[in-house]
Structure formats: structure tokens, C-alpha cells
Amino acid sequence: MNQEIIEAIENKNLIEFNYDGESRTVEPHCYGVSTKGNEVLRAYQVDGYSSSGNMGWKMYDLGKADNINVLEDTFDKSRSDYKKGDKTMEEIYSEL
């Protein structure tokens, strides 16, 4: 469990990290363990590389992420289309 990610969610700080070798910046909304047993982050990507070319909702397997950095920049609130209680997570450590 990563306490910095939990605090980023609680304080609505943006998170920047490398994922599959590419930089991403996200608004973290839910952090926990997937039904497959992986540590994961449900977040809204606002900047950086996207293989689909789209920003938006993504599920990140944190085992594929490195250089995780909580930024001082914040976001205003939970996105209106966010659904609490992510069904793809077996255990939720923190969520908006």
C-alpha cells in the first residue's frame, strides 16, 4: 500500500508517473487491489502519452508504473461521471 497515493486522493493532488515507459499525469480517484490481485489506480488522465490517443478514465496496474510523483497541483473535485465502489477492485484503500 502506498501512503503517498492515498494522501494524493484525499488532498486531490495530481500524480505523474511513467507507465510502459511513457509519462502520464492523472487525477487519482480510486486506489486498491484488483480482482486479479494487482495494485491498481483508477484515474482520469489529463496529460501525457495515451496509446489510444485519448485522455480520460484509465485503470493503471501500478506494477507497470515507475517514478510515481505526487504533484503540488490539485484538481477541484471528483469528476461527475466517476462511479464509487469500483467493481474491478477486490479491496479499495482510498477513493473520492
Rank of each mutant, 00 (worst) to 15 (best):
residue 18 N to C: 01
residue 67 N to Y: 07
residue 70 V to F: 01
residue 77 K to Q: 10
residue 40 V to Y: 04
residue 70 V to G: 00
residue 4 E to F: 10
residue 62 L to G: 00
residue 13 N to Q: 07
residue 28 P to K: 02
residue 83 K to E: 13
residue 35 T to R: 15
residue 38 N to S: 09
residue 64 K to I: 01
residue 34 S to R: 11
residue 85 G to R: 02
residue 39 E to P: 13
residue 6 I to E: 08
residue 9 I to T: 08
residue 33 V to G: 08
residue 29 H to C: 05
residue 13 N to F: 05
residue 88 T to V: 06
residue 39 E to A: 09
residue 63 G to M: 00
residue 69 N to V: 03
residue 40 V to Q: 01
residue 37 G to E: 03
residue 46 V to Q: 13
residue 24 R to T: 02
residue 75 F to L: 09
residue 30 C to N: 09
residue 30 C to P: 00
residue 41 L to D: 04
residue 47 D to Y: 10
residue 58 K to D: 13
residue 14 L to V: 08
residue 11 N to A: 12
residue 80 S to M: 09
residue 47 D to C: 14
residue 24 R to Q: 06
residue 72 E to I: 04
residue 7 E to K: 15
residue 55 M to I: 13
residue 47 D to H: 14
residue 92 I to F: 05
residue 94 S to T: 11
residue 76 D to N: 15
residue 42 R to Y: 11
residue 32 G to D: 03
residue 65 A to R: 09
residue 22 E to F: 15
residue 80 S to W: 14
residue 3 Q to S: 02
residue 78 S to R: 11
residue 39 E to Q: 14
residue 68 I to Q: 01
residue 16 E to V: 10
residue 9 I to Y: 02
residue 56 G to K: 12
residue 6 I to A: 02
residue 93 Y to R: 09
residue 37 G to D: 03
residue 90 E to H: 10
residue 36 K to S: 13
residue 34 S to I: 08
residue 65 A to T: 05
residue 73 D to K: 15
residue 67 N to M: 13
residue 46 V to S: 11
residue 43 A to E: 06
residue 47 D to Q: 11
residue 26 V to G: 12
residue 62 L to S: 02
residue 13 N to P: 04
residue 27 E to T: 00
residue 43 A to F: 07
residue 32 G to M: 01
residue 33 V to R: 07
residue 85 G to D: 11
residue 12 K to E: 06
residue 25 T to L: 10
residue 85 G to W: 06
residue 28 P to Q: 06
residue 1 M to D: 14
residue 87 K to P: 12
residue 12 K to Q: 13
residue 23 S to Y: 13
residue 62 L to P: 00
residue 15 I to E: 02
residue 13 N to I: 05
residue 76 D to M: 12
residue 41 L to E: 01
residue 56 G to L: 13
residue 82 Y to D: 01
residue 75 F to N: 14
residue 69 N to T: 14
residue 11 N to Q: 15
residue 72 E to A: 04
residue 4 E to G: 07
residue 59 M to V: 12
residue 59 M to E: 15
residue 53 G to S: 04
residue 19 Y to P: 03
residue 6 I to R: 00
residue 43 A to C: 10
residue 53 G to C: 13
residue 67 N to V: 05
residue 72 E to V: 01
residue 20 D to T: 11
residue 96 L to G: 12
residue 70 V to L: 03
